Each structure stands twice: as structure tokens, then as C-alpha cells.
Simulated scan of single mutants.
Amino acid sequence: MILATIIGMAIVTMVPRFIPAFIMEKVQLRPWLNRWLNAIPFAALGGLIFPSILTVIPDEPWIGLLGGVVAVIIALFNVNVIFAVIGAIATVFLLTF
């Protein structure tokens, strides 16, 4: 019974993820809608990351903000995202050291 429940939950979870992948190949969206949909991952990441930037060190939120600014500046150079992450981590580490 437990195995059937796990398999059922996997199917229910995967179906909504697979259907758009097959449908979106055949649908042509308007350019403005396509740009809007492409911006959603960035907005979600911003919503997830920004609160953590402010609370990286509870008593000193400016350190997290400075690390975030360094990450944004590095990202503006269109380098790999790992370099922006490493730059932000290094900035926070050096400011707390």
C-alpha cells in the first residue's frame, strides 16, 4: 500500500510537469508574453535570495547587501553564475573577518 501511494504521488507530481513540455513545443506565443515568461525565474530567484541577503548576519544587514551588490556587478559582466556566487561569498567573508 505504501509503494502504491509513493507511485501515485510521483505520477500526480510529474504529469503537470511533463504536459507543458509537450504542449509548448507546438504553441507559438506572442513575443511580449514570451519575454514575460522568461523573466519569471529571475523574479522567483530574487524573491528567494533577497530576504536571505538581509539576514546573512542579523546585526549587520549592510554586509549582506554589499555581497549582493558585488554579485550583481559581477553578473553584469555576463560571466558564469558561479563567479558571482563566489564573489558574493568572498565579500561577505572578508567583511566579517
Rank of each mutant, 00 (worst) to 15 (best):
A43C: 10
A43S: 11
A43V: 14
A43Q: 06
A43G: 03
A43N: 03
A44I: 15
A44Y: 08
A44M: 13
A44F: 15
A44E: 03
L45G: 05
L45K: 01
G46W: 06
G46V: 03
G46N: 03
G47W: 06
G47V: 09
G47N: 00
G47I: 03
G47K: 05
G47Q: 02
L48A: 14
L48G: 14
L48V: 14
L48R: 01
I49A: 13
I49C: 11
I49E: 03
I49L: 12
F50S: 09
F50V: 09
P51E: 00
P51F: 01
P51W: 07
S52N: 15
S52G: 15
S52W: 13
S52C: 09
I53D: 14
I53F: 14
I53S: 12
L54N: 03
L54P: 04
L54W: 03
L54K: 07
L54E: 02
L54G: 11
T55C: 05
V56W: 05
V56E: 07
V56C: 06
I57W: 13
P58M: 02
P58D: 01
P58K: 04
D59L: 05
D59K: 09
D59W: 00
D59N: 05
E60Q: 03
E60P: 00
E60Y: 04
P61F: 07
P61H: 06
W62D: 10
W62E: 09
I63M: 08
I63S: 00
I63C: 04
I63K: 09
G64Q: 04
G64V: 06
G64L: 01
G64H: 07
L65P: 10
L65V: 15
L65K: 02
L65D: 08
L65N: 05
L65S: 05
L66I: 15
L66D: 04
L66T: 15
L66Y: 11
L66F: 14
G67S: 10
G68Y: 11
G68A: 07
G68P: 07
G68Q: 04
G68V: 11
G68H: 11
V69C: 14
V69A: 15
V69D: 02
V69T: 12
V69R: 03
V70G: 08
V70C: 10
A71S: 13
A71V: 10
A71K: 11
A71G: 10
V72A: 14
V72H: 09
V72D: 02
I73R: 05
I73P: 02
I73W: 07
I74A: 01
A75T: 10
L76T: 09
L76E: 12
L76Y: 14
L76F: 12
F77P: 00
N78P: 01
N78M: 13
N78S: 13
N78F: 05
V79S: 08
V79F: 11
V79Y: 06
V79D: 02
V79E: 05
V79L: 13
N80F: 00
N80W: 09
V81P: 12
V81L: 14
V81N: 09
V81D: 15
I82D: 00
I82A: 11
I82C: 07
F83R: 01
F83C: 03
F83E: 00
